[in-house]
């Protein structure tokens, strides 16, 4: 086997090691068919360096735990094929941007989910357990708006892609605001309009520049930008109605 064939069968992988202060460490990993970035990280951890820390769970794009920066872009590593993103056989894998690094590729999601709480992104049911099921017309404008935003898996990729988050650490961020938009459009919610006040502040929906980094990188092809634009319109309407 020639040196070139051998090179084609291996990947040069640079992986971030350490916390906020750290450095990339290089590994050579065998290149496989249909290999994902998560496969690469798992290979390194199991075969080359068991001290490598990273986080994953479902491996099929449902749980939203394995997001990392891959060649400078936030991606869900379990559904990202190496062949699609390797740059001349090289891959750089780093912890998610805009998140505090715990160690290596594992980031602290606490502040991220605290923002969901601060944004009031929690469903408050209108009906009690004794009430029958709510009949929601699947074709109503509100239900359609909610459907367009509902498939969020909470992976944090939009948060990592957002420049406003990097400039203003208090900004609630695309994921939390997108979730609030689904609740504003949920007729089963006890008070959909009450969800607007927490997102109307200076760290809320009006801080968004509609740059659409979130929409470009969302692995589920959602557009938090569109949801945030909806919140901007709804907060304005609420202001005129005297509900803000």
């Amino acid at each position: 086997m020639s040196a070139m064939d051998e090179a084609a069968k291996t990947l040069q992988v640079d992986i971030w090691r350490g916390g906020a202060q750290g450095a990339f460490q290089s590994f050579t990993v065998p290149h496989e068919v249909s290999q994902t970035v998560l496969d690469v990280v798992t290979y390194v951890q199991r075969r080359l360096d068991p001290t490598l820390s990273y986080r994953f769970s479902c491996r099929v794009g449902m749980c939203g735990t394995c997001a990392m920066m891959v060649n400078g872009r936030p991606r869900w590593t379990c559904r990202t094929h190496v062949d699609r993103i390797a740059d001349d056989g090289r891959i750089a894998i780093a912890p998610l941007r805009n998140f505090p690094v715990i160690k290596d590729l594992a980031v602290d999601m606490t502040a991220f989910f605290d923002k969901w709480r601060d944004a009031g992104a929690r469903f408050q049911p209108r009906d009690g357990a004794a009430d029958s099921f709510a009949n929601v017309d699947p074709n109503s404008p509100a239900r359609r708006a909610a459907s367009d935003a509902i498939e969020c898996i909470g992976c944090g990729i939009c948060h990592a892609a957002c420049d406003v988050v990097s400039w203003n650490p208090d900004y609630l961020g695309p994921a939390a605001l997108n979730r609030v938009w689904t609740l504003v459009n949920d007729e089963r919610d006890a008070d959909p309009a009450a969800h607007l006040a927490p997102v109307a502040g200076d760290a809320g929906c009006h801080a968004c520049h509609s740059q659409q980094g979130c929409a470009v990188h969302c692995p589920n092809s959602l557009s938090p930008t569109a949801s945030i634009a909806g919140l901007k319109r709804q907060t304005l309407a609420a202001l005129f109605r005297g509900q803000l």
């Binding site: 006040a197 109307a200 502040g201 200076d202 803000l244």
Partner: peptide, 12 residues
């Protein structure tokens, strides 16, 4: 209050 200011500025 802050929220209303932001919304007014958005409208302006």
């Amino acid at each position: 209050m802050s929220g209303r200011l932001e919304v007014w500025l958005f409208a302006a």
